[in-house]
Design a protein around this nucleic acid. Structure first.
Lengths: 219, 219
DNA sequence: GTCTATAGGCTGATAGAC
DNA sequence: GTCTATCAGCCTATAGAC
């Protein structure tokens, strides 16, 4: 029998609600700027649940980041493992990034903030998860280069360009939305993720294309 | 006559020292994460000077952003005003960004953080300065398009790609430096701003080039 | 598991002397 | 202009009831 109304709530739903609300606030205000009271209020649960379920604000923060990075890594690993022709890998990567963004729009800003902090809020155990994503994207770019459809660009630099522009676009959405809402950028069309990714894909396919149309076979 | 040792310090140098130290801390830890006590200590001045010279932490923050944005806008305006041939404008823009980065390496992260906050720490008076930079870069890209050396790309989207990847690269330097220092990215060469910009310039000149080599004249 | 009430620490700001 | 000493407010964490 259910003893009271609050018992109707699944404990797991409390965790999820807290993580969802916290992601948005950490993204918008940073680790120090996010208030536990507001996280709890937005999640519709009690403030004390943060300590109970995550051991505190820092635990909640790291839990979000590690679980998200694990999810992203698995998603990208599936991409690399797929037998997609090399010239489709980049498109698939960008599509995956949009898809991941749709599921958690605030994650880009949260990750970007952490990168700018040099990983100051992460335990030693969490840092490798961060590195994995970097390696993953680089690997995908690298395959395109090795297959010969791309000119011999530096995989790390290319990775930084691609992931950087995408994360920047996603993470600065709040600012753009505000500027458009207030009519300060009225002259331009509001850019959607789709339009941006299409633009970037175009830019990359032209910018990375091998000079010589003759393609080497997979090594 | 100089009354005491502390009078040897130019009041302007106090302001500059505070702004320099604060830029680094705001960049690294965000507005809320930066501590006034630490800003003052790193600047080598007394904590109370923040209130005296800037009216408080928020005033110091906004002063830094507005003065930096003003400087950047003027630098870019000079670029647009110059009679550089359109096919050199982008190179000059990127060179200017590197130069600005050298003068204040922490500024990218501070601006990026503010953009992710949607301008929450800026007064209404400061927001237009932010918008101006966006318009400036877009204008430069636009000239390349209008002159016909670039294909008809969307100026705003191109602006976001260019500025986004550059700001991302600069702002995440702390994370990369840490990863290289700890040997977690040992496989790759540490990317310098020069190498990155060269890579980006290459990517853009190929990615933006007009399909038709016939160039239209300036309208 | 959840909630209320409270404690304890930290932080930004300033009054007032120099 | 600068410094010292102090304060008031805020914020996280938790003890203890349910």
């Amino acid at each position: 029998m259910v003893g009271n109304l609050s018992a109707l709530r699944d404990p797991e739903s409390t965790r999820v609600a807290l993580m969802t609300a916290a992601t948005e606030l950490f993204a918008q205000r940073g680790f120090s700027g996010a208030r536990t009271e507001e996280i709890a209020r937005r999640a519709g649960v009690n403030k004390a649940m943060i300590s109970y379920h995550f051991g505190g604000k820092a635990g909640l923060y790291e839990t979000i980041l590690v679980s998200s990075l694990t999810h992203i890594t698995e998603r990208l690993r599936a991409l690399v493992a797929s037998n997609l022709p090399p010239d489709r890998l980049l498109s698939a990567l960008l599509a995956a990034l949009v898809e991941l963004h749709r599921a958690r729009p605030a994650l880009s800003a949260m990750m970007l903030r952490e990168a700018m902090s040099g990983g100051a809020h992460l335990s030693d155990a969490a840092l490798p998860h961060f590195v994995k994503v970097f390696g993953m994207v680089r690997e995908i770019v690298d395959r395109g280069v090795r297959s010969g459809i791309y000119r011999p660009v530096d995989p790390l630099l290319t990775h930084l360009t691609v992931l950087g522009s995408v994360l920047f676009f996603f993470a600065t959405t709040p600012m753009r939305e505000r500027l458009f809402r207030e009519g300060r950028l009225a002259s331009a069309r509001a850019p959607t993720p789709e339009r941006f990714i299409e633009h970037l894909e175009d830019l990359l396919s032209r910018g990375l294309a091998a000079d010589d149309p003759t393609r080497r076979t997979e090594p």
